[in-house]
Amino acid sequence: MIQVKVHTILNLKKILGRGDIDLTMKEGSTVKDVLMTMVETYGDSLTDQLFDSEGGLLPYIRLMVNGRDIVFLEKKMETALQEGDEVLILPPVGGG
């Protein structure tokens, strides 16, 4: 098993009740597995914020592993996580 940290902000943080969550996952678990675990735990309110009606990740949700956008990781959602990795799930933001 590996320990993974999940960090989120704003409306997603509200749904989870806190910004940081520690998850214990099977070795070889991916970013997608983390999302699925989260959705199982937090139910529809989280699902609605992350996925469209066909189950696709909403285009404006930004996912990062250790600060790197998953679009720049070779396996994207299938990226396997390592012990201590931090997954960021960011809702759409703006206004700097």
Partner: peptide, 8 residues
């Protein structure tokens, strides 16, 4: 944006 930039 404090939250967003802190997160990254």
């Amino acid at each position: 944006v404090v939250d967003a930039t802190s997160a990254i």
